[in-house]
C-alpha cells in the first residue's frame, strides 16, 4: 500500500552497543519501537507524557516542496506544502524543530523563494525553528545566493553547519553545489575537511544525525541518485555508535543500513518520482491521478529517547 510504510530494522549490527534502534510505523497513531529485542507498539498520544519525563524529543522533516512546479500530477504544490505543514502541526507530540531537506523551489526564482517563506509562516511548525539545506533546484544560476540569503544558517561560508540538540549532534551538509559534468552530488574537499574537524571532539557515544538533499549513498547513480564523495564523509562517521542520515531528492522512501549508519530518503510534499530504474528517466510521475496524489506525499517525524538507545522514524503519508 502506497499510503503506508512498514519497516523494521536493527542498525546495531557492529559491536555490542545497540545505540540505534530504528523503526518506522504504519498508520496514524501507532508507534513501533524495538527495545531489547522486543517489539513495542504504542499510540503516540499515550506516550506523550512519558516522553517528557524521559527528556525525549522529536523533530519533523519535510522535503522537496518544489514551489513553482505547475504540471501533472500536481499543478498546485503550494497547497500540498500547506497540507504537509498542517500534518506536522497536528502531530500528537510537538516537534522541537523542522528540517527541510531541499528543493524548496522548482527553479530557484526569487518569487518562488518568497512564496515558500510565506507558506512556512502560515504554520506553527514553519514559524518555529526550521533548518534548511538546499537542493539542486534551489541553486540554479546563482550558486544558491538567494537560498542562503533567505534560509541559510550563516555558520560557514559554504552554507553547511552543525548544532547540538539535547545530546544529539546534527550536521546539515550541502551536496548540490560545484557539481561536475558527468558526476553526482558533491561535498568537496573544503566541506569534508570541516566535517572531519566538526566531528573530531565528539565521543563515539554521541548520536549523530546528518541531513542533506541528495542521497549520501549510491542509490541509483544512473539517475544521479548519489553523492560522489559521500564515502569519505561516511569514513568520518563510521566510528559513532548511532548515525542517521536523512535525505530528500528522490521523492520516495528508501532505506539502507550500513553498520551503525542508517540512511533514509523522504517523501516529497509535491509529487512522486518513479522507483529506481522504473521507466526511462526520473521526474514527476505524471500518471498519478488527483485522488491518489496525496497518498504519495507526506512528512517524517523522528523521536529520540535519551538513554534508551532508541530512535523512532515515523513516515506519515498525506492521505
Amino acid at each position: 500500500m502506497q499510503d503506508k510504510h512498514d519497516n523494521e530494522h536493527d542498525g546495531g549490527g557492529a559491536g555490542r552497543r545497540d545505540f540505534l534502534k530504528c523503526m518506522a510505523w504504519a498508520g496514524a497513531g501507532t508507534l513501533l519501537m524495538m527495545k531489547g529485542g522486543v517489539l513495542h507498539a504504542r499510540t503516540l498520544g499515550a506516550t506523550a507524557g512519558a516522553e517528557a519525563k524521559d527528556a525525549t524529543f522529536s523533530f519533523a522533516q519535510v522535503s522537496d516542496s518544489h514551489i513553482g512546479f505547475h504540471l501533472a500530477p500536481n499543478p498546485d504544490p503550494a497547497s500540498t506544502l500547506r497540507a504537509a505543514l498542517a500534518q506536522v502541526d497536528a502531530l500528537p507530540v510537538r516537534p522541537d524543530f523542522l528540517l527541510h531537506t531541499g528543493d524548496l523551489t522548482h527553479l530557484s526564482r526569487p518569487d518562488q523563494f518568497a512564496a515558500v517563506a510565506g507558506i512556512m509562516q502560515e504554520s506553527r511548525a514553519g514559524k518555529g525553528k526550521v533548518f534548511y539545506v538546499p537542493g539542486e533546484h534551489d541553486v540554479i544560476g546563482d550558486q544558491g545566493a538567494e537560498f542562503f540569503r533567505r534560509f541559510g544558517e550563516r555558520q560557514q561560508p559554504g552554507g553547511w553547519y552543525s548544532f547540538d540538540h539535547r545530546g544529539v549532534h546534527f550536521v546539515g551538509l550541502v551536496n548540490v553545489l560545484g557539481l561536475k559534468a558527468g558526476g553526482l552530488g558533491f561535498l568537496g574537499a573544503e566541506q569534508l575537511a570541516w566535517l572531519k574537524k566538526d566531528l573530531a571532539p565528539l565521543s563515539a557515544e554521541t548520536p549523530v544525525l546528518v541531513f542533506a538533499h541528495m542521497p549520501m549513498w549510491s542509490l541509483y547513480p544512473a539517475w544521479g541518485w548519489g553523492t560522489d564523495d559521500s564515502l569519505e564523509a561516511m569514513g568520518y562517521l563510521r566510528r559513532f555508535g548511532s548515525v542517521s542520515v536523512l535525505n530528500g531528492h528522490i521523492h520516495q522512501i528508501q532505506q539502507k543500513v550500513e553498520g551503525n549508519i542508517t540512511f533514509h530518503t523522504a517523501r516529497s510534499t509535491a509529487y512522486p518520482q518513479p522507483a529506481p530504474g522504473q521507466g526511462p528517466a526520473p521526474g514527476p510521475l505524471k500518471g498519478v491521478t488527483p485522488d491518489r496524489l496525496r497518498s504519495y506525499l507526506g512528512i517524517r517525524s523522528v523521536r529520540h529517547v535519551q538513554g534508551r538507545d532508541a530512535l523512532a522514524v515515523t513516515e506519515e503519508a498525506m492521505a
Binding site: 539542486e136 533546484h137 540554479i140 557539481l179 561536475k180 559534468a181 558527468g182 558526476g183 553526482l184 547513480p221 544512473a222 539517475w223 544521479g224
Partner: peptide, 12 residues
C-alpha cells in the same frame, strides 16, 4: 564544446 545540465550533472 562539452556541456552538461548543472541540475542533473549526469546529463552531458
Amino acid at each position: 564544446y562539452t556541456y552538461y545540465c548543472t541540475v542533473h550533472p549526469f546529463m552531458t
